[in-house]
Every structure is written in C-alpha cells, then in structure tokens.
Amino acid sequence: MAEAGKAARAETVLTVEDLTVGFVTETGAVRAVESIGFSIDQGKTLGLVGESGCGKSVTAMAVMRLLQMPPAFVASGRILFDGQDLLTLPEHRMRSIRGNRIGMIFQEPMTSLNPCFTVGFQIGEVLRIHRGMNRSEARDRAVELMEGVGIGAAESRVDQYPHQLSGGLRQRVLIAIALACQPRLLIADEPTTALDVTVQAQILNLLARLQEQLDMSVLLITHDLGVVAETCDHVAVMYAGRVVESAPVAELFSRPAHPYTCGLMSAIPQLGRRSEYLPTIPGVVPSLENRSVHQCCFAGRCLQSQMICFKQFPPLKKERNNHDLACWNPCES
C-alpha cells in the first residue's frame, strides 16, 4: 500500500452518506441502520465489522437495493456509485448494475445456489442477462470462470448440480457468479463464516487475487478482526446501527480509540490469528426498539462511560490521520 500510488488514483467508487434504513414492524417503525457513511476507493477494500445484528447485512442489501420495501424503508441518505445516486435510479437501471457492475456474495454458500439448476446455468445466467450471450457461449465462459476461481475439472463440474459440490466449491461458484461481469465493486457479506478454517483461508486468498486482477473495490463484511487486519485497507466499526469508529487499517490497529473497538481487539488472543466470531464483550447490543438518540448506545456496556455518555449522543467526528470517532471518552493508546 504505497501512499503515493494511492493518492495518484484515489477514485472513489462507492460513497454512502447519511444512510438510514428502517423496518416497519407490528410495533412500529424501527431503524436498523442510522445515518451511516463510508466510502471505498477503486481497488481498495473496506472492512465493515461489528457484532451480530448491528446492521451490516442491512447496509449491504441497501446498497444493492435488494431490501423488500415494505417492510424496509430508506429514511435518509445517498448511495453514490461512480457518482450516481443508486437510491434515485429507476429499477431497470438498478437491474443493469446488479450482478454486472456490483457483484455480491453471501454468507450462506450451502443455500445460496438454486438446487434445481446446474452451476454452469447459474453462472451463465449472469452473462446471458448482462452480456447478451446465448446458452452455449455462456456455458463456455462459465467453464473459464470456474477455472478462474480455482475449481478443478471445471469442464465436468459445469453440468453438476449444487448438491454435488462441497461448501467451499459452492462459495467459489458464487464468487464466479458475482465476478462474471467483472464488477467495479464486490460486496462480500461474511463470505467465509460458514466454511471450514482451511477453506476460509483459500477463499480469502482467492478473493484477494481476483481483486488484484480486476482492480476491483471490495466491501468486506465480517465478524473477524483477523481477516480485517489481513485484507482491508480501511475499516468501519459498526455498533447498534451506527459507524462508531472508522480509520485506515494500520491506524485502527495501532491506535484504536473507541472502547468498543478496544474491547473487540483486546479479546483477540493474537493479532492475525483467526477467531470464529468476534470475542464477547459483556452485555448485549440494545434491541432496535431501545436505541436512544439521547445517549451513547454503547454506554451501558462501556468500561469507561461517564455522565456525559448517558446524557448526550456522541457524533462521529474527524480526528487526525483520517480517523473518525464517535466517543466522549476514548481509550488511551
């Protein structure tokens, strides 16, 4: 990551500004994601980390505009992709972006492929939709793509059904689908959580290699700070639907400032070693109904909370070194 090279082509691919997403439920409207913002430069990886339920998937689905509305609604914000606000695009324009210029892979490789179609068909489908290929062209290209994501004997596997493949292979197929049209941006929502540890490493290496090849930006959603340290350029830490801290990866790991981030890090036994889930911090994330705007949402679990933390909401502010922080009483480091 040479700083000079970065500055030379710091073209921003995705900018999310002030995005608020909620759901209409029986008990009223709740907000799962509250006024979050981040941006990703071309070829870079942004890590989105946080505990279960903090709104990572909702954010990803909002960018793809795949949330069912209703019950979901977008209360505010802009999602700028190559300068275009995705939230105002008509649906047919959005369709031509999905799977084409933005690819997405999901957490559940075992269930994310249609059991009734061959993997070749499912990869080829993207090419038929966005590249206008016919069936046989799409199939041939699917074989190449499968080889590209490291699936051996692709020529025979292309006509197999998902249930004939292992979890790792299925995730590779899903990667092939997401990357078939060589997207500008890949959204990877916990791409390795459901896989064996050895397979996890292979998939992450594969993603890194393909990212390099395609000069693609990646939004990597994960539980795993070890993965973040290895693969990301920039990190946004989410808590209870908000970004509470955001910084370049080296900066964040050397000077974590939010007590939540510190808690996450101190609980990793060794940096770089993968743990299955984020280490536990005592207490639980407040439920969607109990998120106050008059106090810090983390205050109840925070070891360093003071009076002000319970009285006033901490806004996200720019600090030194491109480091953003929403905290009244950051931890020293």
Binding site: L66, G99, C116, V126, I129
Partner: peptide
C-alpha cells in the same frame, strides 16, 4: 424466502424471471 432467490435477484434479473424461473422450478 430462500437464499437462492436473493442470489437470483442479486444477478440483476427481472422479478418475473426470478419468480417464474427460479421460484417456480422449485
């Protein structure tokens, strides 16, 4: 509600195709 329907939508296909090809087949 299945995950593969979400995958199909993420490919950018029309909702009709999602329902009549990926949904109906199952």
């Amino acid at each position: 509600r299945k995950d593969y329907i979400r995958t199909a939508r993420a490919k950018g296909m029309r909702e009709q195709r999602v329902i009549l090809v990926h949904g109906l087949r199952n």
